[in-house]
């Protein structure tokens, strides 16, 4: 049984009497432990897909099973509960609370799952050690660099030990080098057996994941566009080195 099962999921918006299908009959399985990316140009529906996968939104049609439980009919409060226990989010703009310091930000999800103060602190410290920020506990987000803020956000996503982590353009607001450090962090998480979903429009980032799901016009593209995913360059490079070897 897959961790996430989508069956014929559609998301339909009505704008001025016109029906817009942001997602159109998507069927998709994501297995536990997968490291996977969702790619597609802006407006393709990849954000909508992530919102539905991440329980931020409910589908208009179709069924979705997370961890064996059907959730397409869940109320907003039930979705909040699921997000709290089973899902971690990392956003492009970090989305840390500016008034709280690093530890308090990481503790935030545990406050809503009713974990006591002492255990909260211990688990937050452990998560911060994992992203190598154990020395910046009392700083406010505004006193940290972009990369550090994103690592705090990752610690926050990890702290409740979720089934799946969603990262929405996690490197979009970072320079190339810092972006690579963050990607390396996700790769490590994947190696530890966590399920990680990267949402991006950047093929080079998508290239780091073993599986790529491409969205176009609200549908999953049958065949991954190698050019878009940057695979053609990899293939070309491989062909080139093979040719060089033949000489």
């Amino acid at each position: 049984m897959a961790l996430l099962e989508l069956r014929n999921v559609s998301k339909i918006y009505h704008l001025g009497g016109e029906e817009i299908r942001a997602l159109d009959d998507v069927t998709l399985d994501i297995e536990a432990g997968e490291f996977c990316s969702i790619i597609g140009p802006s407006g393709s529906g990849k954000s909508t897909l992530m919102h539905i996968l991440g329980c931020l939104d409910s589908p208009s049609l179709g069924t979705i099973k997370l961890d064996g439980v059907e959730i397409q009919k869940a109320s907003t409060s039930q979705l909040a509960h699921i997000r709290n226990r089973k899902i971690g989010f990392v956003f492009q703009f970090f989305n840390l609370l500016p008034k709280l310091n690093v530890v308090q930000n990481v503790e935030l999800p545990m406050i809503y799952s009713g974990i006591g103060g002492k255990e909260r602190r211990e688990r937050a410290l452990k998560a911060l050690e994992m992203v190598e920020l154990g020395n910046r506990l009392k700083n406010r987000p505004s006193q940290l660099s972009g990369g550090q803020q994103q690592r705090v956000a990752i610690a926050r996503a990890l702290v409740n030990d979720p089934k799946i982590i969603f990262a929405d353009e996690p490197t979009g607001n970072l320079d190339t080098h810092t972006g690579e450090v963050i990607l390396e962090l996700f790769r490590n998480l994947s190696r530890q057996g966590r399920t990680v979903m990267l949402v991006t429009h950047n093929p080079e980032i998508a290239a780091v994941t073993p599986r790529r799901i491409e969205i176009r016009n609200g549908k999953i593209a049958d065949k991954v566009d190698t050019r878009l995913a940057g695979l053609d360059r990899l293939a070309a490079a491989a062909a080139k080195s093979a040719a060089a070897g033949a000489h």
Binding site: L56, T76, S77, A80, H81, R83, N84, R85, F89, N95, L96, L97, L108, P109, Y112, S113, R156, N160
Partner: peptide, 16 residues
């Protein structure tokens, strides 16, 4: 508004 959004994203229910 953004703060409320973040709190909800990490699991705050409407009641919270």
């Amino acid at each position: 508004i953004r703060e409320i959004g973040i709190r909800k994203a990490v699991g705050a229910g409407a009641l919270d």
